[in-house]
């Protein structure tokens, strides 16, 4: 298994804006627990960046995982927590090349 990069583009779906600030905070707290579990298991959150000006999506989040399986597990837990129902998304995964360019 290879060290992997996971790239997550997202934007709020329309009904995200229909939630109250308290409801939004509650959802975010649940997803933060999912992210903490991934970090505790060895993942690295490289960062979250704003890309709305050049993309259909609003933000891009970049993570490093020990394997693509760990990236899948992270996403599966986020979707189980309902994240995908409130944010539209597109994801990419890539494995590290040992020798650089092919």
């Amino acid at each position: 298994m290879s060290e992997s990069i996971w790239i997550h583009y997202s934007r709020p779906r329309p009904h995200w804006y229909r939630l109250t600030a308290e409801q939004q905070a509650e959802k975010k707290a649940g997803w933060a627990l999912v992210e903490k579990a991934s970090i505790d298991a060895g993942a690295t959150r490289v960062g979250s960046y704003h890309v709305r000006g050049q993309h259909d999506f609003q933000t891009v989040d970049i993570w490093q995982f020990a394997s693509p399986e760990a990236a899948f597990d992270h996403w599966a837990r986020l979707t189980s927590a309902g994240y995908n129902e409130l944010f539209a998304f597109s994801n990419n995964v890539g494995i590290a090349l040992q020798e650089g360019h092919s």
Binding site: M1, S2, S67, P68, E69, V93, I95, L97, S102
Partner: peptide, 19 residues
Amino acid sequence: PTISAAIEGTVRLERAGWA
């Protein structure tokens, strides 16, 4: 057989000439 095997297989095919 697995997610890792899937991704590694695409790299092997691409490098064999598919790309």
